[in-house]
Simulated assay, not measured.
Amino acid sequence: MAYSFAVWCGEAPEFAEQADDFFSSFEVKQEGLPPSPILQSLVADLLVEYPEHDIDDNDFDDDAWIWTDAPLMGNVVGDCAVLSVAFSKVDSVMPNILEIIGRHNVHFIDWQQKVFIRSSFASP
């Protein structure tokens, strides 16, 4: 099982209650666009801290790895990315992942915890 969250740059809603609908609409608009350099840099930093591996669905060990899909850079589409962490690792890695995300000053939505963090550079 995976714990999924999204990051994106650019426009963002003003209020947390709007974030889920906003992201769904924003994500559709990004289809087919080249990966954002900001998000490529973010994913590269995440991979320095938490390397990925070749995923084989028949041999995936939830306790051995952080990311539940690979290549992680393939999840960057335009100005957004949906990333997934193994549930068994969430408590130990999410605080650091959030710190890394914060350094890149992008928006963040966590559907499981109903958390939305708006970048300080956001435009409404």
Rank of each mutant, 00 (worst) to 15 (best):
H107Y: 07
A2C: 11
G78C: 09
S84N: 14
L47V: 03
K114I: 13
V76R: 03
V28L: 14
A2P: 15
G32I: 04
S120W: 11
A86Q: 00
W67H: 07
A70V: 06
P34Q: 05
N96G: 11
L39P: 02
F108S: 08
I97W: 00
I38A: 12
L39C: 11
P51A: 06
G74Q: 11
N75E: 13
G10A: 00
H53D: 08
G78E: 06
F87Q: 13
A122R: 04
L98D: 10
D91G: 02
V77I: 15
D69L: 05
F22R: 01
E52Y: 06
Q18A: 09
V77Q: 09
D69N: 12
P13A: 04
V76M: 09
L39T: 11
P34R: 00
P37D: 06
L47Y: 00
V43A: 07
A64C: 08
D21G: 07
S25I: 05
L39N: 10
L39M: 13
V7H: 04
K29P: 00
N75C: 07
F60Y: 15
A12M: 05
V28Q: 05
V93H: 06
L98P: 04
V77M: 04
D110Y: 10
L39Q: 05
H104Q: 04
E11Y: 12
A86G: 02
D91W: 02
Q30S: 03
I101F: 00
S123W: 12
S41H: 08
F22V: 03
H53N: 08
D54C: 09
S123K: 14
V43D: 04
E31R: 14
P37R: 08
F116H: 02
I101V: 15
F23C: 08
Q113H: 10
F15V: 02
F87S: 07
I101N: 03
F26W: 13
